[in-house]
Write a protein that binds this DNA or RNA. Structure first.
Lengths: 135, 135
DNA sequence: ATATTAAATAGAAATTATTTTCATTTAGAC
DNA sequence: GTCTAAATGAAAATAATTTCTATTTAATAT
């Protein structure tokens, strides 16, 4: 938890009870979640927690590097905890069984200078796999 | 156009006027589009073209390899023409200026056997760049 | 401790995107 | 031409996300 609160502070975001609860939820659940998933759990502790706060916070927490966006092609946003210790470029692997997210530092693109006449600006990579617990 | 119609046939999908128009639109526009973009253009030719047909067809065309899903993190679906000649594993590069999509065959993951105890199942990679025309 | 202030919150309502349902039409095979 | 499963359009429903606004609160300086 400490490392995440540190990131919040660095980004100038306030440590509100809601934010703490969201972060704790991601740490405890160890899976990626949609805004609705998040809200469903958080509202058991904060009876009057609104959707907008969930949506805004999930995005804020991505901005400051605590969460990462996970792609699922199902019309919903998905977020996972970014457990990377380091700050620089990395990707994530997602367990297709339990939804667990892990930072990975393998990256092919850094070696590729030029692609068919394109100038590379950025890239997104998501690896899907099965984690040890789910094998 | 021929190569795409071939893919349709192989997948057992009927060649309807709407499908032909959608494919032609992607060929001509040379950019990725949301269902709404697609509908807006297609309806100039098919006055009574409904949303559901657009949504269904875009997904069908992804299934048979004519289109590919493009990730944009903006709550909309995005589709681009998949111009890969070959059938096997590949990724796409997207021009951040004009939206043009190209197949690329560079792939890092094929070299990586194991990631931190995960068994790799699949991966998605999207490279964003600037194409020659936009440089 | 207390006051201050910009940031964060909840709630309601609005907006936007997507899907379902179903009756009708049509492409492709015979 | 006939047939049949697939595809279509229209309306309505659903689901996801955002906007708006008044209120509250965390963090800072006093």
């Amino acid at each position: 938890m400490e490392q995440y609160l540190e990131k919040l502070k660095t980004s100038g975001l306030k440590l509100t009870p809601l934010r703490r609860a969201i972060i704790k939820l991601f740490i405890d659940s160890d899976t990626h979640m949609t805004p609705e998933d998040t809200w469903a759990t958080v509202k058991t502790q904060f009876r009057q927690c609104g959707f907008p706060s969930i949506y805004r916070n999930l995005e804020s927490l991505v901005e400051c590097g605590i969460l990462t966006r996970i792609q699922q092609f199902d019309n919903k946003k998905h977020y996972g905890l970014c457990n990377s210790k380091e700050d620089h470029h990395h990707h994530h692997i997602v367990c297709i069984k339990c939804g667990k997210v892990d930072a990975i530092h393998e990256c092919a693109i850094t070696d590729i200078k030029q692609i068919k006449g394109y100038q590379i600006v950025s890239h997104y990579m998501q690896v899907n796999g099965i984690c040890e617990d789910c094998m």
